[in-house]
Each structure stands twice: as C-alpha cells, then as structure tokens.
C-alpha cells in the first residue's frame, strides 16, 4: 500500500514537472515579459537592466528551475493586466469555481447513478427509453447552447432565476461563499445544471452499462440461487460492483468539470478562475495563463491520486496485503 502510494506520488511529480515545463515556455517565450511590464517609453538600457535583474538573461535551465521553485511557493509573478500577484488573483476566484464545480459534480453523480441504475434495472420501461434518448441529446448539445437555452427559459421567459453573476456572497475571511444567501443559491442553479449535464449523461451511461454487465455475472446468478432478496442483489451486490469502475471515471470527471467550467463561467459571467483565464487570454496576460495551466494540472493530478487510492480501498483484490492471511 505504502509502496503503491509512493510510486503514484512520484508519477504525479513527474507529470507536474512536465506541465511546469509547458507553462514555463508559455510564460517565458510567449510575448516579451519586459515589454508587457513596462511602457513603450522606457529606455532600452533600462529594459536591459530590468532584464538582467529579473534573471531573464540566465540560461534557460536556471530560469526553469527558478520558475519551478517559485511555483512550489505559489509564486507566479504579477498579472500584467491587473497588476496583482497571480496567486492572490486565482485564490480569490477559486471559491466561485469550486462551489460551481462541486455543485455540478454532486448533481451529475446523484442523478447519473440513480438514472443509470434505473435504466439498467428497468431497461424495457417507457421512462428508461425516454431517459436514454434525452441523454443522447445531452451529450451531443454543446454546453454553451444548453446554458443559453436554460437562460432563455428560466431567466428571460419565466424570470425565476438570475442569468448571470454569483448573487450575494458572504466573506468567511478565507473563503467567499455564495451558498449562504438566497440569491447566491439561486444564481448557482442554472450554471451548475449546465455544467453537470455532460458529466451526468456520461456517468449515467457508464453506470447503466456496468450495471447490465454485472447483472449478467455468475455471482449475481449465484446470489439469486441463494434466494437473496431482489433489493439485496440489486442495491447491494450489483451496485457495489458497478461502482468500482464508476468511481475512477467519475473522479476523473471532477477534473474536467473544473476545466470545462471555462465555458459555463463565460456564458453565465460567473466570477471564477475559468472566466479569469478567458479574459487573460484575450489580453495575453501570460503569468495568469501559465498559472492557470499549472492549477488545472494540479487539480487533475491530485484527483487522479485520490481516485487511485480510493479504488484501492474499495477493491480488496488490489490489496495484496489486506485481509488476515493471503494464500
């Protein structure tokens, strides 16, 4: 178990280093950092002095190591556009994105698993057919269209829910949450649904396929032959085995939820890191772009790690040293 975790940690570090290299290349070679920092009227000699002082004339390897060192301390430089430390900027936007992603993931997981199980257990019912057809639409419609459609129905036509922004937020000192106010919660509904739909259909189809597969196995037949109740078989034996592979995929999806939030945040003008990234790209705010890249990579790597460990905990076959006596 420990060896496994150490091995996975080492892999994660390698991945992060690779992403750091890409981020560094963007950071250092897309545009000219000095030109972005200073006005055009600064004399060339002064620019040269700054260049030296910032170490931009050092060998690339040294610069890269410095970049990694700074990154590890959460240091990504100053945003060209907002003249604020990038890390501070991202951290201030993070709660909005995390709350949105978490709400979406919960919606996707709960409805995905419930609908997946339902359509697997009652494949012939009319409702299952309807759900399956709807899910096809769900995966094929682009996120922004769904978002705009929802805005049109629930904001413009019905006027029930706000179409943009985060509503009122409560500052907890280290975290600005929208979950404690009515407008905050109302504002969360449409973007969360929009962001969840794709993952929801994915999880649902996965759960359904897995569940159908599991229901055909010998151990389910043997469970039936032992006279276990339908309930114990479907929601105990079958569901547990279904969820093992689903955990992996779903966990990994959480990463994409955060990454995909870019589109949803833009459609709903949600003040998260995704919309920060989009505006940064528009004005070539390179430090923010590089930091965002590192951030998303870190999210994926961390989620991967947690998922692997979780998988390990759930499936006894992977625990070689688990149990009392392995023979």
């Amino acid at each position: 178990m420990l060896a496994f975790i150490i091995r996975r940690l080492a892999q994660s570090v390698l991945v992060m280093l690779f992403v750091a290299l890409i981020a560094f290349v963007i950071f250092r070679y897309v545009g000219d950092p000095i030109a972005s920092m200073v006005g055009v009227e600064t004399r060339l000699e002064d620019q040269e002095i700054m260049r030296d002082r910032l170490g931009l004339n050092d060998p690339a390897v040294i610069q890269f190591l410095r970049f990694v060192g700074n990154a590890m301390q959460g240091e990504f430089g100053i945003s060209y556009r907002l003249q604020q430390p990038v890390t501070e900027l991202i951290l201030s936007r993070l709660p909005a994105t995390i709350e949105l992603a978490f709400a979406s993931a919960m919606i996707a997981l709960v409805f995905g698993v419930v609908l997946g199980v339902f359509t697997a257990l009652k494949p012939k019912s009319l409702l299952s057919g309807a759900v399956m057809s709807a899910s096809l639409i769900g995966v094929s419609l682009p996120t922004f269209l769904i978002g705009i459609g929802l805005i049109y129905i629930f904001s413009v036509e019905l006027g029930w829910l706000p179409s943009f922004g985060r509503g009122e937020v409560v500052d907890l000192g280290w975290w600005r949450t929208g979950l404690l106010t009515e407008t905050g919660l109302k504002s969360l509904i449409l973007p969360a649904i929009t962001l969840s739909l794709f993952q929801l259909t994915l999880i649902m189809r996965l759960v359904r396929a897995e569940m159908l597969e599991v229901l055909r196995t010998e151990y389910i037949r043997f469970a039936r032959a032992r006279g276990l109740t339908q309930r114990a078989i479907n929601f105990g034996h079958a569901l547990k085995n279904t969820l093992v592979p689903v955990i992996t995929i779903t966990g990994l999806q959480l990463g994409s939820v955060i990454a995909f939030a870019i589109v949803t945040e833009t459609v709903f003008q949600w003040p998260g890191v995704g919309s920060l990234f989009i505006t940064s790209v528009q004005v070539v705010d390179v430090p923010v772009m590089a930091a965002y890249l590192m951030f998303i990579a870190l999210v994926f790597v961390l989620i991967n790690l947690v998922v692997d460990i979780l998988y390990f905990v759930v499936d006894p076959r992977l625990r070689v040293d688990g149990g009392s006596s392995g023979k």
Partner: peptide, 24 residues
C-alpha cells in the same frame, strides 16, 4: 419462489472462481 431458493433448494454452480462476489 425466492424464499424457496437457498432455503429449500440450494444450488452449486460450475465455476467457484466466478460464483462468489469479489467485493464481499
């Protein structure tokens, strides 16, 4: 019928490697 299975008629299948739920 379910109450009879296992209680009054037991069943043993061919392959013990696949007859048992691996997660239980």
């Amino acid at each position: 019928m379910r109450a009879i299975r296992g209680r009054r008629i037991g069943m043993i299948f061919q392959d013990p490697l696949t007859s048992l739920n691996p997660l239980y």
